[in-house]
Design a protein around this nucleic acid. Structure first.
Lengths: 189, 189
DNA sequence: GTAGTAGCCTAGCTCTCCTAGGCAAACGAT
DNA sequence: ATCGTTTGCCTAGGAGAGCTAGGCTACTAC
């Protein structure tokens, strides 16, 4: 019998692709094993359990997204950087709905600390250099930006905007204009 | 044998409470049946399937949230209304994490159209009357507001803000200030 | 009081998750 | 080359979830 050559990395990659196709909630150990022509029990040699598999997808997605954003951000500043960041973020979420959804699962603190989530925070702060905000305004602004991006993408995906005909691309562009405006003139106390 | 007196409504209510305690993903037909001292098969007389149960929780939550928001909004206008809406929204999400999570599941279009989601959209538009925005700016502003609220609450819940010590209440207040500022001076083209 | 329906039951299937223990392929050392 | 040793996948099987089919019993209407 030839071996399938499984590794945690290959499994995670395949699981992430599967998530994009059928949704994270349908990423099961059994389905993944089937894709490799292997019995489900065999995967437990490489994975702790089903939850572990989903966490791995989340970490993969966080790292991938951080890469895309870093690339988009290179050499840009100010509103240009803001828009590039935002579009890279939204693009990734739309191209990889399953990966994006996986990113939303609760990571326990130490896993989260070791994840690429930290890079996101750093890059978001980098954007704000163009807007000259000091603490604690900077943190507040980072949180608002992230909220807007995540909220918009998430509502768009679950169909929260469907009841109005207005193209979401337009609303997205205006939201970025609005963010730029408010960051340029942050209402500090 | 005495009957348990099950109805779809009672089941949904109990399921929603269960969701708040253990998370939507752990709301199972079997667990719900156990709470009523009944066999799981019995619930299929009142529910189509497990997904149907979750949809019912989502619809219940949407209606409840719309009620809270409507109450909070009564007699207020302008920034006052904005803050009241936002706080009612965030409060509900924090008090009822399971219900809130259930609200995020994809509803098929006709179910969504019949849901209280519509009331949310109407109330959000009502707030904007204080800011004198006309279409399509109004739709864009509604979408941005909703994105900010949902994004913030959702990130707060999944621990997305944990890596910075700044109290989230402060950031929330500043985000509302920022929203008020940008709505007061919406950057239309 | 009896017919009919509504409400809950048991039995049983499929699927997923996961553990324990077995066997064979790959590999390093002699 | 061959002989352990490790590594990788296997079979077997149990627990629990989802769901269906069909049976029995408590109410309800007449």
């Amino acid at each position: 019998m030839a071996r399938a050559g499984l590794t945690a990395e290959r499994l995670t990659q395949a699981a992430a692709d599967l998530a994009d196709e059928v949704g994270v909630e349908n990423v099961t150990v059994a389905a993944l094993a089937r894709q490799f022509g292997v019995k489900d029990a065999s995967l437990y040699f490489h994975l702790r359990n089903a939850h572990d598999l989903r966490v791995r997808i989340a970490l993969l997605a966080l790292a991938e997204l951080a890469d895309r954003v870093a690339e988009a951000l290179a050499g840009r500043a100010g509103k240009d950087a803001l828009v590039a960041f935002a579009n890279a973020y939204r693009d990734y979420a739309r191209r990889h709905p399953g990966r994006y959804a996986a990113m939303q699962i609760d990571l326990d603190p130490e896993t989260a600390a070791a994840s690429a989530g930290i890079r996101h925070a750093e890059m978001t702060r980098a954007i704000l250099r163009g807007y000259r905000l000091s603490e604690p305004d900077q943190t507040d602004a980072v949180r608002m930006m992230h909220s807007t991006f995540h909220g918009f993408v998430s509502l768009e995906r679950t169909g929260g905007f469907r009841h109005t005909p207005r193209p979401t691309d337009e609303s997205w562009a205006r939201a970025l204009d609005a963010l730029d405006a408010v960051l340029s003139n942050w209402p500090s106390r």
